[in-house]
């Protein structure tokens, strides 16, 4: 029986060294480019409330009548009367992608993972691109941002998120009458642990803008899915700022107590 020839050991060592060297000189960004996927790396500012933004790239409003279930309606009323519980907690996948002009996001793009930082939120979104699936139900740990996986479908990043804990602020933010809700009477849009978020993210406007079509499915809260479309502008002129949420809380002067504490 013939044996396959065994390469000399020195050849194998040289091959291994060459592979290691190639890996070391190939940063994540370059690897992404080699796969010819769109370059979404960088700082992006949401266009909600930006009055002079290009009218082609306007966020669609959140639904005013989202088709609440009984539980969803009650939870919406509860959140409307709450005084911002857990205001320093992460905002969840929909809140991160809220695309207001208040805070920028920063996208760090590698071939196997995309990390999205939101200026006002300490926990980043980690979107896995390595082909993994969501954990099974008995291994899935509910978290604020949930578990996100994605793949490129042509020029569109298709993101799927489950595993949220249902404890974030409303999906459309707290502030009645803000750039998030549009009008004072807008209902707070809660989410439960059954939240399933599907996103289709792509570059538009010759690469100067990012579009995210966000579909929210949460049958505990809403009778049917609803979709919003959000836009950001690429902002190489903006640096992300530090946001230490617990630093100088002033519940005294926010009206929840009657005395003013001495400034630190």
């Amino acid at each position: 029986m013939a044996h396959l020839p065994v390469p000399p050991r020195s050849f194998l060592l040289r091959l291994t060294a060459a592979a290691l060297a190639a890996a070391m000189v190939c940063p994540l960004g370059l690897a992404a480019q080699k796969q010819r996927v769109p370059d979404i790396w960088g700082v992006w500012m949401g266009l909600g409330g930006v009055t002079d933004a290009d009218p082609r790239f306007r966020n669609t409003p959140y639904p005013l009548e989202p088709g609440f279930t009984e539980w969803g309606a009650a939870e919406s009323r509860r959140l409307a009367s709450a005084t911002t519980p857990g205001e320093c907690n992460p905002w969840g996948p929909v809140g991160v992608m809220g695309a207001t002009g208040l805070f920028p996001i920063q996208i760090l793009q590698g071939p196997n993972v995309i990390v999205i930082h939101h200026e006002a939120i300490t926990q980043p979104r980690r979107i896995y691109m390595d082909g993994r699936r969501h954990p099974s139900a008995d291994e899935l740990l509910p978290t604020f941002n949930g578990h996100s996986i994605a793949r490129w479908d042509g020029d569109t990043l298709v993101v799927d998120t489950i595993g949220t804990n249902g404890r974030t602020r409303p999906l459309n933010g707290y502030v009645s009458g803000s750039v998030l809700s549009g009008v004072d009477t807008a209902p707070r849009l809660p989410a439960s642990e059954q939240l399933h978020v599907s996103e289709r993210i792509r570059l538009v406007g010759a690469g100067g803008y990012l579009e995210d079509v966000i579909t929210v499915e949460d049958l505990k809260t809403y009778r049917q899915p609803w979709t919003v479309k959000h836009y950001w502008q690429r902002r190489p002129d903006i640096d992300m700022q530090e946001y230490a949420c617990e630093d100088n809380r002033r519940p005294d002067a926010e009206g929840q107590q009657t005395t003013v504490t001495a400034p630190r």
Binding site: T83, E87, V175, S176, G177, D184, C245
Partner: peptide, 17 residues
């Protein structure tokens, strides 16, 4: 007429907008 508060961190329900 109420102006839009641009402050998203917490509820501003304690202020008379």
């Amino acid at each position: 007429v109420a102006t839009q508060p641009a402050l998203a961190h917490h509820s501003f329900a304690n202020f008379d907008l």
